[in-house]
């Protein structure tokens, strides 16, 4: 078959909603796009543990501490599911980890913002995980089989993350004035960065949209962002708090909320490595990796030694 025929057969499969599996033929650009997206997603889960890990030792109660540990452990697990999915595309775990540690690979910019108070744990769960879930629910139907299966598993576990976040804020919203202020300030801090999580506006791109055609994505950035805003603008009423956007209001004609302009300069600045915590996050990952080097080496040496012992016994 010529490359043209192969590409046509590939697109036919996609159009018929047949999943692509690791050993199937796929265009090189499809493989690369998936690899980049899945590995960035994995890195985001791993770096995403840091802002919350920051509060494990200072959680206000044993219950909250146990919940936070469980959530952070889930994120480690999600990172591992995704690394495995990415490996099926022909890269190694070591290569991906190296790319993260060197700063070559990207992860979601949202994790380059600091978690200043306990209320940030609530805002991160509600807003950041809420935004991530919208994207992840869509990705459960992505065309690459291993990615879709990892997302199904992740979505099952992720729902508790968002619910515990909202509940954390709900408790604060019914508390003292200091607690209510803390709640509102955390929402103010996380609102705009959460909207940036969906990526640049659709109008920024003039090229034909290959990711949609290949059904890697099924909704555009703007569609997902609008879904999120419509959802949160209603949910916040239960908290009795406000979103920090004077232009936010229901548009009866569109049946959607209108909202103010996102600061894209800030977005690109954080992507470029100049966010409040970019350096700190990478330094923390590098420290953990370096300090764990002897454990990895020891485990391998031990496995090797046991294998030799078994072989000697057999001989």
């Amino acid at each position: 078959m010529s490359i043209h025929d192969l590409e046509k057969a590939f697109q036919d499969k996609i159009d018929k909603e047949i999943k692509i599996e690791p050993k199937d033929w796929m265009p090189e650009a499809y493989r690369k796009t998936n690899l980049r997206q899945i590995s960035q997603h994995a890195h985001s889960e791993i770096v995403g543990m840091l802002p919350e890990g920051n509060w494990i030792s200072r959680a206000p109660s044993l219950k909250r501490k146990a919940i936070l540990i469980a959530k952070v452990q889930d994120e480690a697990g999600h990172g591992l599911y995704l690394y495995s999915a990415a490996e099926t595309l022909g890269t190694s775990r070591e290569q991906m980890v190296d790319d993260l540690l060197s700063g070559k690979a990207k992860y979601s910019s949202i994790f380059n913002y600091p978690t200043l108070t306990w209320a940030d744990m609530g805002a991160v769960g509600w807003l950041v995980d809420g935004a991530a879930i919208l994207n992840q629910v869509m990705l459960c139907r992505t065309s690459y089989g291993p990615y879709a299966r990892a997302m199904v598993r992740i979505c099952k576990e992720e729902s508790f993350h968002q619910r515990q976040g909202f509940e954390t804020l709900l408790v604060l919203s019914k508390g003292t004035k200091e607690q209510r202020d803390m709640c509102q300030e955390a929402i103010n801090r996380w609102w705009w960065p959460s909207l940036m999580m969906f990526g640049p506006k659709d109008s920024e791109s003039t090229n034909s949209d290959q990711s949609m055609k290949w059904k890697i994505k099924r909704k555009t950035n703007d569609e997902l962002r609008q879904n999120f805003i419509d959802m949160i603008a209603e949910q916040i009423k239960l908290l009795g708090m406000t979103l920090p956007d004077p232009d936010l209001k229901w548009n009866e004609e569109r049946k959607h909320y209108d909202f103010g302009e996102i600061n894209w300069e800030e977005f690109w600045n954080v992507v470029k490595g100049n966010g409040p915590c970019n350096k700190q996050r990478l330094a923390a990952r590098n420290k953990a990796h370096d300090e764990g080097a002897w454990v990895r080496a020891a485990a391998l040496a031990y496995a090797e030694k046991r294998k030799n012992k078994l072989n000697n016994k057999a001989a």
Partner: peptide, 24 residues
């Protein structure tokens, strides 16, 4: 593909000021 989806920032975007590390 030059559209940057959520979780899909191109490797070329932005500068990396951290030092490069050799492979593990």
């Amino acid at each position: 593909i030059n559209k940057y989806y959520y979780g899909d920032i191109p490797d070329g975007a932005g500068d990396n000021n951290s030092e490069k590390k050799s492979s593990t």
